[in-house]
Write a protein that binds this DNA or RNA. Structure first.
Lengths: 336, 336
DNA sequence: TTGTAAGCGTTATCAG
DNA sequence: CTGATAACGCTTACAA
């Protein structure tokens, strides 16, 4: 049973395709009775207007792209959830692209999306350390893009971020107040905008507490769990920090694994706090203190921003930047 | 800077659109030199073939849809990850649809996808308790669909599942071997195929151990954490099971919350095992025994099955069913 | 090897 | 209110 097209449907009804088309569009004039007749027959024959054709004709795809580094990640999956809700509300479809932190992939995706497949892009970037001049090129085009969480600071664009500096400052301050003298900062790439901002909060909190900054306490990790474990095992046994501020969730988890293995008691021997969207932080052993980003809300806001753009292309050069607040939740891992 | 089209590009080059088109397609004959010239100019002018147009022409969308109940969920986000990898490998794009366990949404999505937007669908169903005759209607069409994990048993279709019965049997048996006399089965909807299969394993394990099945030990939960907590609080204080077999992750987590609040010691007072894709089960307090489904692999296999279909529509009526194995990992929550 | 022209399924414009 | 027609941007026989 192949899908039928508008022409066949029109024939069955002894009508022109234009009239049939009108029955499916809100605006145009059409006799209510004919419309009813058309819709009834359409239902019977299971007719559905072909989207490719109408999109081509209308030069709109009613689709947006979401580009993220990964999806098996509490923060991003929740953010996508928020994006999805708003997109659906607007009658839009969502294409997913995972860069796996591969900058070249990011470029390829964005480039290939310039071909009419989508009306806009929501993305969390991956190649902050690289040359992203390609972005500047793209930005001159009409395809609207909104960044969320991980952004390119040198690209003038709409964006949704959180108060990373402030929460990092507070988190570090909290560790110090809990008696930590030697706080390590765990980061995946300290050159990335997020890494930089979070690190600045850490640095300033140390300074304000009169604790000298030590370079060896900034631990540059990777995205691979096994590598991080090896690295941290070394750090925890040799440098022996008494506090850990993890800039991303996976580094806190790596710390947990290592401490479990090494018999280091988190909360007592080593206090840990981390950016994390882990719902069940409270159930960990011990309960993990977190800086909780409003991931779902960030997704929603990013999508809303994008649709504002899509729906009013006239002021496509006015960028909006929204900063949302993270929530600090202190648990046993720092209260020990 | 609006994107240019093939006609404009052809004009600049003093060529016909057909020749230009040929430069972008692998097959057709074309002078290597002209091809080079075209590609160079295309790059300079930033030309990209319009996908909507070529898809319309070719009657292919190079896009698949992934329909899942939710995305902020370890199992599904990982499965999507697997699907993504295979799809990308095949040069396909991925549209995401979240039903949020709303059966009507599922129907709407599937129906709307019949209009040429995608070449195939990978889905984990949601409305198992409902009448899914709409599916039978769809199945007569050419759009290939592959189910994974949650399936409709009465719909003849390709599918990827895991050995749910067996792992449930083993999990229950394990609890009994650990000394449990009163094992509760936690389920979201015992009428759903997954709930049924997993329950059967539970029932049979009890029987084989000579323990009489008790209806009150089958706890029908919901998808809402707060409701589940209330319900389980009641169960744990009144019925007082000494073992819990949770058919989905969120029910194990609800149990943890409740036990933490009630001061019930998991592992000692109450042993817990659960289907779960939680990477950090080991880090929970106490470490959670899990039945780990190969979520990523399931996604990959489901996608592979779909592409086999898409690429050879001739045997579109031969359904493949693949069963993968879950892994049981016993930890402190059952070893106490 | 390249060009011409028809057509993919819609919808907007314009005429009736 | 309805119908004819052109156009959206691309691909592919077929012709040259």
């Amino acid at each position: 049973m192949e899908p039928i097209n508008i022409k066949q449907l029109a024939e069955k009804l002894n009508l022109s395709t234009s009239t049939v088309s009108r029955a499916f569009r809100g605006n145009s004039d059409i006799n209510p009775k004919t419309k009813e007749r058309i819709l009834a027959m359409a239902k019977e024959l299971n007719y559905q207007p072909n989207h490719l054709a109408s999109n081509l004709r209308e030069k709109k795809s009613r689709t947006i792209a979401v580009i993220v580094p990964e999806i098996a990640n509490n923060f991003f999956s929740r953010a996508i959830n928020g994006i999805e809700r708003i997109a659906r509300e607007n009658g839009y479809h969502i294409l997913i692209y995972l860069t796996n932190d591969d900058f070249q992939k990011e470029i390829d995706f964005i480039m290939s999306l310039q071909s009419g497949r989508v009306d806009g892009i929501v993305m969390s970037v991956t190649g902050e350390a690289n040359d992203h001049s390609y972005m500047h090129k793209i930005r001159k085009r009409s395809l609207p893009i909104v960044f969320f969480d991980r952004i390119y600071e040198d690209v003038d664009n709409s964006k949704i971020t959180t108060n990373d500096y402030e929460s990092s400052y507070q988190a570090t301050k909290h560790l110090i107040e809990q008696g930590c003298k030697k706080v390590a900062y765990l980061v995946v790439n300290k050159l990335l905008s997020i890494g930089k901002k979070r690190m600045q909060g850490y640095v300033d909190a140390l300074k304000d507490a009169g604790i000298p900054f030590q370079d060896e306490l900034v631990i540059d990790c990777t995205n691979r769990m096994d590598e991080n474990k090896t690295l941290l095992k070394d750090v925890f046994t040799k440098i022996k920090p008494d506090g850990v501020f993890a800039s991303v969730e996976r580094l806190a988890l790596a710390s947990y694994y290592v401490c479990h293995d090494l018999g280091i008691e988190i909360g007592a021997d080593l206090k840990v706090i981390s950016f994390s969207s882990l719902e069940i932080a409270r159930l960990l052993n011990p309960a993990l203190s977190t800086i909780l980003q409003p991931s779902y809300l960030m997704g929603e806001e990013a999508a809303k921003l994008l649709f504002r753009r899509i729906n009013s292309p006239e002021n496509n050069d006015v960028n909006e930047a929204i900063e949302l607040k993270s929530e600090l939740i202190f648990r046993k891992s720092t209260l020990g």
